[in-house]
Nucleic acid binder design. Structure first.
Lengths: 207, 207
DNA sequence: AGAAAATTTAATCAATTGATCAAAACGCTT
DNA sequence: AAGCGTTTTGATCAATTGATTAAATTTTCT
């Protein structure tokens, strides 16, 4: 499907990632993957022992794609305002490139929570980072409203991610095409950026 | 599974709703449903012609459960502040009772968008309601920040719904049990209520 | 009660599923 | 070219899937 220089194993993973993301684990057959990869259906079992093992490999990759960039941003030594803005920008770009990344992860996780074992460490790192301390400091200095960092992170994530989780619904309800949705999403991101920052950074610290 | 006075058809629907919501369409077998309903597996085909037809029936019910209450609230002649608060409360209660209602709907819709045909009318009503006019009026009067009502509705929905969409992830990342999650969610709702209202209803209309 | 209709059951169907196997094709070293 | 390990192929397996059928049972109506 992509460049022909890829090894067979890599071609299988690429195809599997595509098909799994589109149809989910239960909706995907091993023959779907073989066809998408242009390989014999026995090769999937040759390189990865089973559909489940292949899925775990893909799922770890996808979770890493999801969290790695976020984690890096979260630990950057930049101002809170910048960090929040960049976190939201990063999610937005990531989701524009792969709109069903989040709903895929969340749904597979719901169907089978133990599947996060491979990436659970990464997920746990997110809340326990520099970000947390940064928030605490800002609160102590009276710069932002006193809220636990978990809630702030949830706000940052929810207001971007749900846009894409509900993309089909939004398009149907508002009668939008792809371009229309993108415009809506772009506008929305600016609004929620403002909303979150205005909520956290109160205009007048009443001293 | 519930009261034995229910008709067979109703027992099938109840069981199917439970199983479909838990496992999704692809992850559910007709025998799963039969077992959950305590009936012979041929009865599903007797009352509903196929798994697909049964699912459509369930999916319509579930979408109605999702949208009906929201629509009623949206069209109530109450103040914007009250309406926003009540809309969020309603979602919150609905999701506490059925935590995977939204992710189920969104994911099935993503896998098969034409499945909303049965409820598309309802989904389209949401944005084109009294709510829209109410927002426009409030903007014209300088009461709230000028934003299209679609964006406001998205904020109201996203900040509650994503909590539950990401429930397994949140529990794992923060190491919460059921009670811990509920406490987190309850706190979060108050925060986002404040956030949205503070963003919309600016403190000083600079006249 | 007794016939007719509706419901329920057990058995079974064809198709699809994930997975395995032996044989064939390939690539590398000698 | 010969030998050897790796990769690929086509065929096939047992299990499961959604669905159907005819017979058995229950309900309904007269």
């Amino acid at each position: 499907m992509k460049c022909l220089t890829d090894s067979t194993e890599e071609r299988i993973k690429e195809a599997a990632k595509m098909v799994f993301l589109e149809k989910g684990f239960d909706g995907t057959t091993t023959r779907d993957i073989a066809q998408a990869a242009g390989i014999n259906s026995a090769l999937m079992n040759y390189y990865f022992r089973s559909k489940e093992k292949l899925f775990q490999s893909i799922f770890n990759d996808v979770c890493t794609l999801m969290f790695k960039g976020m984690l890096e941003l979260i630990n950057q030594p930049i101002s809170l305002r910048d960090k929040i803005s960049k976190l939201m920008d990063h999610q937005f770009q990531m989701m524009m490139q792969n709109p069903n990344l989040t709903i895929f992860i969340m749904n597979e996780l719901r169907l089978n929570p133990e599947r996060l074992y491979g990436t659970i460490g990464m997920a746990k790192q997110v809340p326990e980072s520099i970000f947390h301390q940064q928030i605490e400091d800002a609160i102590a200095q009276g710069i932002i409203t006193p809220i636990d960092s978990h809630h702030i992170l949830t706000m940052i994530i929810a207001n971007i991610q749900f846009l894409f989780v509900s993309k089909p619904m939004t398009m149907l309800a508002q009668g939008l095409d792809e371009a229309g949705f993108n415009a809506f999403a772009t506008r929305h991101m600016e609004y929620v950026k403002d909303m979150i920052c205005e909520y956290l950074f109160k205009p007048e610290p009443v001293t």
